[in-house]
């Protein structure tokens, strides 16, 4: 397994060095966790950044890992492509401890990745990012005609829907028949 520590990249906001609050109260060292996607590339992410994800936040709260344990056991997200996970981690780092603005300019601009990003964000339960992604999806059809919407959102026609439904029924029928035959074979 390869390992890159990208969570502390330059995109992350710099830590304040002489903030008056930090002078008054002793700073608690930030804990880090590790995640990897389908490509097995491990990303180091702070607990603060990971708070955006309800799924990971829940996992962290239940585990109580030490830094070493966390490093040895990165959270595996095999269903998320490496580059998509990278986008999500970057976004979480950029928005660590900050109130999320109503319009986000830091969203990934590649529209072709948007679908995978939405699925990943939905899976990781990052509510604010999901809202931004949904806004981007909605914006795709601004001022478009029904035909253009069909094209952009790849919506099948009624005839295509009917054909797909028939096909699904046929397949389900065949599968049911196969299962019955297998059960009969087992009984013998």
């Amino acid at each position: 397994m390869s390992s890159t520590e990208q969570g502390t990249s330059s995109a992350a906001p710099a830590e304040p060095t002489t903030a008056p609050e930090s002078a008054a109260a002793p700073e608690v060292p930030e804990s880090f966790y590790y995640v990897h996607g389908k490509d097995k590339v491990v990303h180091k992410v702070s607990a603060g950044a990971l708070q955006h994800s309800a799924l990971i936040h829940g996992m962290i709260s239940n585990l109580g890992y030490t830094e070493e344990q966390a490093k040895a056991n990165p959270f595996p997200f095999e269903n998320i492509d490496g580059d998509i996970l990278q986008m999500v981690v970057d976004w979480c780092n950029q928005h660590k401890g900050k109130p999320t603005p109503p319009e986000d300019t830091n969203l990934p601009k590649q529209k072709e990745k948007l679908f995978d990003l939405v699925l990943a964000v939905n899976y990781l339960e990052i509510k604010e990012l999901l809202t931004y992604c949904c806004k981007q999806v909605a914006m795709m059809v601004k001022g478009k005609s029904p035909e253009e919407i069909r094209e952009i959102w790849m919506i099948p026609t009624d005839a295509e829907d009917e054909a797909a439904e028939k096909e699904a029924k046929k397949r389900a029928g065949k599968e049911a028949a196969g299962e019955t035959a297998a059960a009969a074979g087992d009984a013998k």
Partner: peptide, 23 residues
């Protein structure tokens, strides 16, 4: 050609979230 997005393949709740954002 404008970018394409398979809306109907979204999980149902996300699909509905997108629809809620339309005018």
């Amino acid at each position: 050609m404008p970018p394409r997005f398979p809306l109907n393949r979204l999980p149902i709740l996300v699909y509905e979230d997108v629809l809620k954002l339309l005018d």
